[in-house]
């Protein structure tokens, strides 16, 4: 975890701002889709042991609906859009008019929600690409309804090779009456951090 020790307040602020801008654009896109106001919390930037990553969304065994995509290009990483079961059901109802429990979803509902995730994470990433002038491409999104620990661990393998800690940029959002609430998680690969910082002109002498 050598490179995390080089982090000062300034670097944390920059990452929080990345979360703020990215999730801000995503929340705007969600607001347009739902025709409702969406609020956002201040992004949390954390450097935490792997085990604690899932605690941010209710623990390793908590069942969540997640759209996952791999960020490829200049600054690779993993991106997750996470909703609890009730929120996912409400979101789907708002957008498609179909009101079904998550367990009863068929391919159409899964596909609709995956597309919502795709639009939102896409706006997160493109605003980040505009800001940094880096080439960032999303993979095809995948959707899973499963234990948070099992899903989020997917974002940790690249990090696992160089340490036992993950840097997560976590932004929570919620619709006015909290019927729909969820999180955007960006987990950059370790080698992406110096690239991100350099693109923004932030001093960072991380070494690996």
């Amino acid at each position: 975890m050598a490179y995390f020790t080089k982090f000062g307040d300034f670097q944390f602020d920059v990452l929080r701002e990345i979360g703020n801008i990215g999730a801000g654009h995503a929340a705007t896109a969600l607001s347009q889709l739902m025709q409702k106001a969406i609020d956002m919390k201040v992004p949390q930037v954390r450097i935490i042991p792997f085990d604690e990553v899932a605690d941010c969304v209710g623990g390793a065994e908590n069942v969540v609906v997640t759209v996952f995509l791999r960020v490829e290009g200049d600054s690779p990483g993993n991106m997750f859009f996470i909703l609890d079961l009730d929120s996912a059901r409400h979101l789907l109802t708002q957008i498609t008019g179909i009101n079904k429990e998550v367990e009863e979803w068929d391919e159409l509902q899964v596909s609709a929600l995956r597309e919502v995730g795709n639009i939102l994470t896409g706006s997160y990433l493109s605003s980040l690409a505009d800001l940094t002038k880096l080439n960032l491409q999303p993979s095809v999104p995948g959707l899973a309804v499963d234990m948070a620990g099992a899903i989020l661990s997917y974002g940790l393998y690249a990090l696992g090779q160089s340490g036992d800690f993950a840097l997560t940029i976590d932004t929570a959002f919620f619709e006015g009456n909290e019927q729909v609430k969820g999180n955007f998680f960006l987990i950059p690969d370790p080698e992406s951090l110096p690239i991100l910082f350099r693109s923004l002109g932030v001093p960072f002498d991380g070494d690996y």
């Binding site: 065994e61 948070a148 620990g149 099992a150 899903i151 661990s153």
Partner: peptide, 10 residues
């Protein structure tokens, strides 16, 4: 008893 939670690819 031994227990581990949330095994995905692990």
């Amino acid at each position: 008893r031994l227990r581990t939670t949330g095994l995905g690819s692990c």
